[in-house]
Design a protein around this nucleic acid. Structure first.
Lengths: 237, 237
DNA sequence: TGTACATCAGTGAACGCGCGTTCACTGATGTAC
DNA sequence: TGTACATCAGTGAACGCGCGTTCACTGATGTAC
């Protein structure tokens, strides 16, 4: 078989891998996080348990694949929103709402996948190495939103910590540089991104954990308020 | 046995119940959330598995007891901080930091207990009815902090939703009334409390999930920034 | 103060369950000549 | 175009594990007289 050319077997193989992941996600959605069981996935697909070992090295390997996919999907949702906001020529505050809203929409539509990447660590499972890079890909488009305004007193301590972090960690500096051209404003972008991350996790995390069901507010209103607080602190607009 | 008077058996019984809960918490701390196993708890205590059924009706009963205790502990930590702030005559912004900091300190010291009450729902476990009341007890002391200032434009939509909620739900109105005397300002307090809840969950939740380990900032700096954003929005001080 | 009885903590065996994973194998499918 | 071979998807049996929970029981401890 020539390199780059894939026979029908390879195609079928990839298709079955996808079907396994889809089935696993459906079961995760129904039975709750941490309930990923290879044998149950196999049974639902009409296969025997050991058959799945043709496609994944084991339970942890399947879990890792699901986590990678979830990060990539979330990153794509945010990147799409960023591209749309760019095209529409929106101001930073509107972009913040567009990006944050896209993230929340993705998470609310598939809470089990959100829990996979942000929830409590699954017992006995060790996250793969590339997790950090994928998390950064999600947050990247938020970085340039915070470089135009000037951060207020409420976030100055955090900005100081970000400056120290940038100076000490070449990896994070390189990541920020991919999204922020003016290095003098890197710390602003980074502080904003970290805050966005926490704000998002606040409302979206509570919402996906099902804590809003008996409460008299909508998830998007709460998130919008949180993001506006942030925009205020950076005097965006 | 006369009513109200407890013999030595009852005392021993209560003591063993406590020891079971302590052991379960220690294992939860070591093995991660969702890993509560009656038989393992029994083994560590040098007991046989069935012995625990003298003290708890089953696994779910033990889990419910742990959750109740965690809520009560968190509520006590916040209430203590509120009493201390009252005594010191602090202004609302300082009180917000004191209360939020107390909550974070509690959660950071015992992340497994925090995950018990805020983390993803444990598969196959149904939360007891009184959970909502206990969650409200934690947030209650935050309510009066937001009734002095005037909420800005960023939170006005949320305040409107809170007014509707208060009008529609007598239970929540009664809860708010226990902490806020001026009913015209109930919605401010409630909006602030809901935002506090989300802000706390944002940084504390990420911190307890272990997401800060490779990041260049401290959990308390991030939380302080988030709480200051909130104080700004309500023009506290 | 002593004795008979009731209470209750704790045991060990057992049941049934679902799980991850291994192993030797069978049979179909694609491929090289 | 046909045949021999290699590849690989999938099976079924098996192993060992830990789990929640039940049941009939034993023995110690507190209590009533």
């Amino acid at each position: 078989m020539a390199a780059g050319q894939e026979g029908p077997r390879a195609r079928y193989r990839e298709q079955t891998r996808s079907e396994i992941k889809d089935t696993a996600l459906r079961q995760l959605a129904e039975s709750g996080a941490g309930a990923l069981a290879l044998t149950r996935v196999a049974k639902e697909m009409g296969l025997s348990g050991p058959a799945l070992y043709r496609y994944f090295a084991g339970r942890d390997d399947l879990l890792s694949a699901l986590i990678r996919d979830a990060y990539d999907d979330a990153a794509a949702a945010v990147a799409d929103a960023a591209a749309g906001a760019e095209e529409a020529g929106q101001n930073p505050r509107a972009r913040l709402h567009a990006l944050g809203g896209a993230y929340r929409t993705w998470a609310a539509a598939e809470p089990h996948r959100y829990l996979l990447i942000q929830g409590a660590p699954v017992p006995g499972y060790v996250a793969p190495d590339d997790t950090r890079d994928r998390a950064r890909a999600v947050l990247g488009p938020f970085l340039p939103l915070f470089t135009d305004g000037s951060p207020g007193a409420s976030v100055s301590a955090l900005v100081t910590e970000m400056e120290a972090w940038l100076a000490a960690d070449a990896g994070v500096a390189e990541w920020v540089a991919r999204y922020v051209s003016d290095t003098r404003r890197s710390a602003y972008g980074l502080a904003g991104a970290v805050l966005v991350w926490a704000q998002l996790h606040g409302s979206v995390g509570l919402e996906t954990a099902g804590q809003f069901t008996r409460m008299g507010h909508r998830g998007d209103t709460l998130l919008a308020a949180q993001l506006d607080l942030l925009a205020d602190a950076f005097t965006l607009d």
